[in-house]
Design a protein around this nucleic acid. Sequence first.
DNA 1: CGGCTTTGACCGGCGC
DNA 2: GCGCCGGTCAAAGCCG
Length: 176
Amino acid sequence: MDNYPTLFPTQQSSSSTSASFHSRHPSHQSSNMIGIIPVFGSLHGGSSSGFSGLNDEMRATTSHGDAENEMKPGKKKENKVRKPRYAFQTRSQVDILDDGYRWRKYGQKAVKNNKFPRSYYRCTHQGCNVKKQVQRLSKDEGVVVTTYEGVHSHPIEKPKDNFEDILNQMQIYSNF
DNA sequence: CGGCTTTGACCGGCGC
DNA sequence: GCGCCGGTCAAAGCCG
């Protein structure tokens, strides 16, 4: 199946699946991407990544999440399709970073070792099971970690064609 | 009036 | 077997 038509920051050719950070609310804060961590379904290694402090805080988030949606004991699907997971570390004053998609909040839980809660969002598009969770580091209040799970299979709901947005994307991509 | 946030309860897995 | 923990559901309320 074509579950994964496009991946994330692999190539710059797919601008549709990219993320354009812009706030819907009239609160324009300075958001500088200071780190991006592609998290795959292999966390068993443990110290495979060199993200010391950050990874330590995020371990609780990505600890037991490794495989696809259906992983039932006894009836494990041979589906080797693992859901891609990407963690974005962004410097922003606000938690809500609109990437162009429409998200619906479906939960909020307190995180251990963290004074700030974690918000769970889900793409409101029908058939799009992309999830995303936003967490703020207790150590650095100005750092927001956004973890995307899954890949969108539909165009971005863009309010309008803003060159600024596209420019913003390109800047983000050329940042690393 | 519709879509979305909120918030507590619930569930399944894992560790002890 | 029990309790903890992270993730999800769902009813009610809020806001445009």
